[in-house]
């Protein structure tokens, strides 16, 4: 018996037309299929150091993300990070990290299907997010490289600040919440349509 392989689709593949209607001050784009691995390791341990030298980065501390390399490293908890890399690198990255870690104590798990990523940019991003998120996106409170797991319109998200003053952010959202969040974003952006934004 053969099992048909379902065709892969991203949670927001049907939303491009709606996103295109948003004002220029609020550009929304899905970054589908990013490679995402969860890393559980005690900070400062031999395994953590092995990961750091394998990726040539320092694991970021609380509420921070390391965005310099191809593999972005997002702080998720005191002994937990999310590694986000371009599409299709799961196997390669898993193998690289597992061989670097060797017999030391750590866990690396492929969670690429768990979340999708929304890239938001424009001068309205901060104002629109403020309608559903309690986090202070003032650059003094959340400078570039901030990484906060919180709620946006009651949906669990991880927010990564990529541009000064939240002019560019990533929202990582669980796949099953993605269309709800897209609906909310499009609705929240509607009032700015046709304005100079």
């Amino acid at each position: 018996m053969t099992v048909e392989t379902p065709i892969r689709f991203s949670p927001l593949s049907e939303w491009q037309d709606d996103f295109a209607q948003l004002p220029t001050g609020l550009q929304v784009r899905e970054l589908p299929y990013l490679t995402q691995l969860t890393l559980r390791v005690a900070p400062g341990s031999a395994a953590a150091k092995a990961v750091e030298s394998a990726l040539d980065i320092t694991l970021p501390g609380p509420l921070r993300a390391e965005l310099s390399g191809d593999v972005k490293v997002l702080w998720m908890g005191p002994d937990e990070w999310l590694l986000a890399a371009p599409e299709g690198l799961q196997d390669e990255l898993l193998a690289q990290l597992r061989s670097a870690i060797g017999d030391e104590f750590a866990a690396v798990t492929d969670v690429s299907a768990q979340r999708t990523t929304l890239a938001l940019s424009g001068h309205l991003v901060r104002e629109v997010l403020a309608q559903g998120c309690a986090i202070d996106l003032d650059p003094r409170a959340t400078p570039v490289g901030s990484c906060l797991t919180t709620l946006l319109a009651q949906a669990p998200i991880t927010l990564v600040v990529r541009g000064e003053g939240a002019s560019s952010v990533w929202l990582l959202v669980r796949s099953s919440f993605a269309s709800y969040l897209a609906t909310w974003l499009v609705d929240a952006g509607t009032e700015y349509r046709g304005s100079s934004g």
Partner: peptide
């Protein structure tokens, strides 16, 4: 809304807890 200070994340709204 009441804020609760998570030892790791700082002050957040109580609905996160």
């Amino acid at each position: 809304m009441q804020l609760i200070a998570c030892p790791w994340c700082g002050e957040r709204e109580e609905i996160e807890f």
